[in-house]
């Protein structure tokens, strides 16, 4: 049974009188402990798909299943809890809160998860240690390199122990060396901690070197699933 599944997901945006189809009848399944990459050019609908899976957006038709349970019927509050505990997301532009230092960014996520006081501080330090940033606790995002910022974002995404990490172009703002380092870290987490990763990228080379599977998307459709 797949951990994550999209069944016949479509997304149509209404732009005035014309409607734009961002996703057209997309189905895919991700098993637990897999590193899956979705590759495609910009506008191929891969980020839209990721937002659906991450619970940030709703499909126009079809549904996303997590642990075989559909997300469609969830209330706003349940959806927030899904984002909080079931999935973690990282983005191309990191999306750290610029006025908070590394530790505070992670503590914010832990606060939403309900961790308090000393336990929250300890967990934040542990998480930053896991991504190799034990010495960057009090640095603000602006004082960190791109690679370091993305590591903080990973630590934050994993704060409430989600089974799935959703990565939207995580290396898009990194040079190739940093990109390889970062994907190495993600690969290690999949292998060692059996984390499930769904990553969106436009870089075929990176996708093929680190992912277990590559799904190719074009114009809102899946055009190729290399392992099936």
């Amino acid at each position: 049974m797949p951990l994550l599944e999209a069944r016949e997901v479509s997304k149509v945006y209404q732009m005035g009188t014309t409607s734009v189809t961002a996703l057209d009848d997309v189905s895919l399944a991700v098993d637990e402990g897999q590193f899956v990459a979705i590759q495609g050019t910009s506008g191929s609908g891969k980020s839209t798909l990721l937002n659906m899976v991450g619970g940030l957006d709703h499909p126009s038709s079809g549904d996303v299943y997590f642990n075989a349970k559909p997300l469609g019927p969830l209330s706003k509050k349940e959806m927030a809890r899904y984002r909080r505990f079931s999935v973690g997301m990282i983005f191309q532009n990191f999306n750290l809160i610029p006025t908070m230092n590394a530790e505070e960014n992670i503590k914010l996520a832990l606060a939403f998860g309900g961790l308090r006081g000393a336990q929250r501080r300890k967990t934040a330090k542990d998480l930053l240690g896991r991504v190799g940033l034990s010495d960057r606790l009090t640095h603000r995002p602006s004082e960190l390199s791109g690679g370091e910022q993305q590591r903080v974002a990973i630590a934050r995404a994993l704060a409430n122990n989600p089974k799935v990490l959703l990565a939207d172009e995580p290396t898009g703002n990194l040079d190739s060396t940093r990109a390889h380092e970062l994907l190495g870290l993600l690969r290690e987490m999949v292998t060692r901690d059996s984390l499930t990763i769904l990553m969106v990228t436009h870089d075929r080379e990176l996708a093929s070197s680190f992912a277990d599977r590559i799904i190719l998307m074009k114009d809102g459709r899946i055009v190729e699933k290399d392992d099936e």
Binding site: L56, K76, A80, R83, F85, G88, N95, F112, G113, R156
Partner: peptide, 16 residues
Amino acid sequence: TREIGIMKAIGAEDRE
């Protein structure tokens, strides 16, 4: 706006 978006992405409820 972005900060609020981030908080929502990491699981903030509307109520919060």
